[in-house]
Amino acid sequence: MATQQSRTLARYMMAPAVILLLGWMLVPLTMTLFFSFKKYLPLRGDSLENGLEWVGFQNFVRFISSSAFWPSVSTTMIMVGGVLIITVVLGVFLAILLDQPLWGQGPLRILVIAPFFVMPTVTALVWKNMFLDPVNGLFAHLWKFFGLSPVEWLVDYSLGSIIMIVSWQWLPFATLILITAIQSLDSEQLEAAEMDGASAFHRFIHIVLPHLSRAITIVILIQTIFLLSIFAEIFVTTGGAFGTKTLTYLIFQRVIDSQNIGLGSAGGVYAIILANIVAIFLMRIVGKNLDR
């Protein structure tokens, strides 16, 4: 569809982006892979200059067999799953609600979307201190008002609290995408269903929900990718204590806190594999969309 001359030009114009991303992907990835087969403890004098000891798959085995690994996997799964369920269910509800005729739709939508624009460190800090703090937090005041004793949220219900904080952050994202999807629903379809005698409930189950299914899938996949690497929210609130150590956080601790680069890199390789499994599904959907 184009001439030869423009095709050559196009290749040159694409080169910088492709080369940069290729470097950004390959160089660190190769290094991580390299470290994961090495014993690398900088604090005990290991360094690249002196050469690192090859340990085969020892790091991979140790990472999995460490007592922290399986808890971190289950923590990750509970956190990601919990946030997904909350945001998708509430997101569908909110999207439908905001699509109804009501006054002040514009300003209202802005209120609902706002949490997404708050930087993660602020979100975590505000929730931790001003809401969840057992002495001065708003929830503590509320509990006392009803004659209950305040709860140590980030100690006793730490994972639940983080799920709530992260859900608050991501609910706007789900809502926004689902509203956009709902607005593309042909109103004649709903009217046809109404003429055919379908109740509001049946219209939701048989028409609205199937129409939203693609958008819901996209929300789930994209959120999963971002949620798997949630960091600041844990870093600021619990620092990984009280059963909130996700896989990402475990790797972070191995690398930065205990300076065990080999072990951390092996964990990194696991994380990359995990993310890629999700990514494949997401890319399939996005790719299909490209063809249209």
Binding site: M14, P28, L29, G268, A271, A275, V286
Partner: peptide, 21 residues
């Protein structure tokens, strides 16, 4: 299309996996 998809895939690289490098 392949290039676009590949670019997308780099976005999905977990940051923590390449933190130390």
């Amino acid at each position: 299309k392949d290039i676009l998809m590949w670019m997308l895939s780099t976005k999905m690289l977990p940051a923590v996996g390449v933190l130390y490098p």
